[in-house]
Design a binder for these strands. Structure first.
Lengths: 211, 211, 211, 211
DNA sequence: CAATAACCGAGACGGTACGTCGAGTCTTTGG
DNA sequence: CCAAAGACTCGACGTACCGTCTCGGTTATTG
């Protein structure tokens, strides 16, 4: 029981407002891009006073993280029976997500802000990075259960493997779509999956087998 | 032939100013981050009037690109005799670059701005992306010359290979260092190089050998 | 008979609260001046919810009038046996009142607000102006009884006399203390009383004798 | 030569803007009253950016003083040949001034603010009070030249006389018009002038002759 | 050597968004 | 029905930065 439900006094915060504000933020983001999002504008779209925004989020940055974070909740690692299928599936989901204008406008800007604001970085990590890393853990465990991957040598090695795979998948897809500005069509996804799969399934005696 | 040098009339622009401005911009960037860089502040640091900035760069964005672009000029692909050594070298150089605070503050912010400003995107591509991609081309050609990689099946396939490798290297290193916030030490570089090298040098009959 | 005491249902209003609120208002007024008085602040000082303030006074203006009005209740016209003594006494009382910081902060601010808010103006007149004017009436009647002043020629003339004397006393003392910012010491009071007394006691055949 | 004309650098401030802003302030004052005057509104009316207002006046208060002060410049003490005529003239001018809505809205509010802001009080004194006091000095000197008033006993006594007469005229007219809310018609002016004139011209052996 | 044209510094300008604050209202829980 | 608490709407505040403009004054090249 995390929330002791402390029956606080005074008028409770409107739950509707939260929903309306986050939706308005995403809408503004998709329409105007990061720089175009204005607290005043979001407030108007949400039918809410600017003060209400500031009462709940200390600044534009944290608001946008929260507004965008939910988009990542839809990512999931479905066990499709093979490591290749699982990887292709999650890459495709991520590519689809990055094809949406609100993600596109938000993600890099968010990372940019986070790179010099420790509090925001922490929030981004909790709301976005960690949930995504979980997917890699799941896929890896499933592949181990199927015998496609060797069992963990040690917890530390497992974490290092997850980290490098996660950074490779996330970084590469983001770079292709948001920086190089090219799409991630099925063909590219297949090629990229092969690139990932080859070292993962390489002979275990290869010292790099555990990447 | 640097410029047609059309010896325009009137007082020529101070060459010192350009240098001072770009240096001031990098300094401000390292100290305050992208959002903290102010045209007025840069002008003061450079001992120059704000007008002078705007006479030479149309806006803050282009100024910062130019200020940062030179950082990437130092990257080079030295032929070290083996593909592994070449890759490790360029990854290390890139990691060292991203470890500097001004690059850290600038790169993601630059990409973020570019993702919604076509003119800036073009400028980023010309000043930063293309020069880096050239490195991949060079390394690939050297490896082919050494017989480590198969010759190009076709120019299109070669381009596709270069693109995917470039996005993977750049994206992964950036994501690890700027988003995940972890360092790229020699051990990690070695592991990441192995991850790249395995599919590249896989058996040629494997249709995915050409990644 | 204070009120018809209609014993309304529900919890009765706390009488202590009224006292605490008015005292808190005067305290805030003395410390911060009119513009510094905040409903929230008054509520906190009085240990009361903001709602309670608004349940009892329709707005900040009326609250401050009520808080300040009681200060003027202490003014009184004591019959000291001569018109000069009576005038000096009431001028001194008024000067003492205006020397207190809460009156100083409140009076002009109150008049300023009232000058553009008819409802407030009415309230100020009833709570402050009329009671003061009554003093002039009393003093005049006493002087007439003593034979120092001629009897009223007509009720209208009497009212006009009271008005002009009242505006002169109140306006002059206020202007000296609050605008010119100088004190009203006994010497000044004496001089001012002489200034008033001379025309009042001038020869009756002088058509201006009835000022 | 007061202004050494220091040939300051940079773009000079627009003189038109000052005029437009002060006019806009007076207009807003007359329409909306003190509380209704908004920096943003004044800026719009003046066709000027809000920044420009704040660059020239530190706050609303000082702006309004300056806007209103010019109204008092039109007051003048014309030598009409007799003390009564002179007094009636200046009282009438002052009454006319206070009949204008912008003065009405501004004056008390200004005095109220000034009563707790020393800087503003100084500004009010310099811009409004002193120029008005000068009128009393002039009228007094003229009456002495004509032999209607005795010469100064001493400079201190003269100042005290001027002070008390000034506070009486200004305070009484303001109180009647702005607090009591009644007009100052010729009849009232005549009565009030008599009230003033009687002690001023009383027999010199009367110790109150020098009021 | 003077004219001229482009440069330079300083700083005011119109705008736009920011984040804060106070007034007055509304909505809870609890006497 | 009252009270305390605190969230709510609204609107003004004063600040900061952007990118433009207008000054007086300074170099170069050209006539």
């Amino acid at each position: 029981m995390t929330e002791a439900v402390a029956p606080r006094k005074g008028r409770p915060r409107s739950a509707d407002a939260d929903v309306a504000i986050l939706a308005a933020t995403r809408a503004a983001l998709a329409e105007l891009g990061w720089g175009g999002v204005t607290m005043g504008d979001v407030a108007v779209r949400a039918g809410v006073a600017k003060t209400t925004l500031y009462r709940r989020w200390p600044s534009k940055n944290e608001l946008v993280v929260d507004a965008v974070a939910v988009l990542f909740d839809e990512l999931e690692m479905a066990d499709l029976g093979s490591l290749r299928a699982d990887i292709e599936s999650v890459v495709r989901q991520f590519a689809d997500l990055l094809a949406r204008p609100e993600s596109q406008a938000a993600l890099l800007a968010l990372f940019a802000e986070a790179s010099r604001d420790p509090a925001l970085r922490r929030r981004v990590r909790e709301a976005i990075i960690h949930p995504q890393k979980r997917l890699v853990h799941q896929g890896r465990a499933a592949a181990q259960a199927r015998g496609e991957l060797a069992p963990d040598a040690s917890p530390e090695a497992a974490d290092a493997d997850v980290d490098i795979i996660f950074d490779t998948i996330a970084g590469t897809v983001e770079h292709r779509m948001l920086v190089s500005g090219e799409c991630a069509d099925p063909e590219w996804i297949s090629r990229f999956t092969t690139l990932l799969l080859t070292p993962l399934t390489a002979l275990p005696q290869n010292p790099a087998g555990s990447v």
